[in-house]
Amino acid sequence: MNRVDHIGIAVSSIEHVLPFYEQTLGLKLLKLEEVSSQGVKVAFIDGGNIKLELLEPLHKESPVAKFIEKKGEGIHHLAFGVQGIEERISELRDKGVNMINETPKQGAGGAMVAFMHPKSSHGVLYELCDKTNIKEDHA
């Protein structure tokens, strides 16, 4: 793991919570994007030393919608920046970690992503986020 890339926060409505981040906390919106493969609308917020990723479900079957239904809005995942995501997945599996994604999927900003199952990581949902093939880090 190279670094913490971002913290994912599940929200019911980006439009509703964005004023808190921008006006109350004084943080800057970097980008809005839909990630259909994950069933979410995403807002990246510049948190200074780390990005915050607000995740709004696009439909009721989205994993984020199910998370909000079960646990409510709040911290959803912690993402680690990695290089060579396929090799990281293999290394983690060799160490007994169950992966939600056995192969990487396209994520926000063009990154390739894969999630570890929280049962293998003491209740925390971790994301591997590989931006190696992205020419510019948009988010």
Rank of each mutant, 00 (worst) to 15 (best):
N2G: 07
V4R: 05
V4F: 13
D5K: 13
D5G: 08
H6V: 03
H6P: 05
I7G: 03
I7C: 00
V11W: 01
V11G: 01
S12I: 09
S12A: 13
S13Y: 10
V17F: 01
L18S: 03
P19A: 00
E22V: 00
E22G: 03
E22F: 02
E22W: 01
T24G: 04
L25I: 05
G26P: 01
L27E: 00
L29F: 03
L30I: 14
K31H: 13
L32H: 10
L32V: 04
E33D: 10
E34T: 12
E34Y: 09
S36K: 08
Q38S: 14
G39D: 14
V40Y: 12
V40D: 11
K41M: 13
K41R: 15
K41S: 13
V42P: 14
V42M: 14
A43G: 09
F44G: 04
D46F: 02
D46P: 02
G47V: 00
I50E: 06
I50F: 08
L52S: 02
L55S: 14
E56V: 09
P57Q: 10
P57V: 09
L58T: 10
H59I: 04
K60S: 13
K60H: 09
E61A: 12
E61V: 00
E61Y: 08
P63D: 08
V64W: 10
K66G: 08
F67E: 06
I68Y: 05
E69H: 11
K70V: 02
E73K: 03
E73A: 05
E73H: 04
E73T: 06
G74T: 06
G74P: 02
I75V: 15
I75K: 01
H77V: 04
H77K: 01
H77M: 00
H77P: 02
L78Q: 06
F80G: 04
F80C: 03
F80Y: 11
G81D: 12
G81V: 04
V82L: 11
V82G: 14
E86I: 11
E86S: 03
E87A: 11
R88N: 13
R88C: 11
S90L: 11
S90I: 07
L92T: 04
L92H: 07
R93P: 06
G96F: 08
N98G: 07
N98H: 11
M99Y: 05
I100P: 00
T103M: 10
T103G: 01
P104E: 03
K105T: 13
K105N: 13
Q106M: 11
Q106V: 13
G107H: 06
G109V: 02
G109E: 14
G110L: 00
A111R: 15
M112V: 09
V113H: 04
V113T: 07
A114E: 10
F115P: 05
F115E: 03
M116E: 08
M116H: 07
H117E: 10
H117A: 09
K119F: 11
S120I: 04
S120W: 14
S121C: 12
H122Y: 10
G123H: 10
G123K: 07
G123S: 07
V124P: 08
L125G: 05
Y126E: 06
E127N: 04
L128G: 11
C129S: 09
D130F: 01
K131Y: 14
T132S: 15
T132F: 00
I134A: 06
E136V: 15
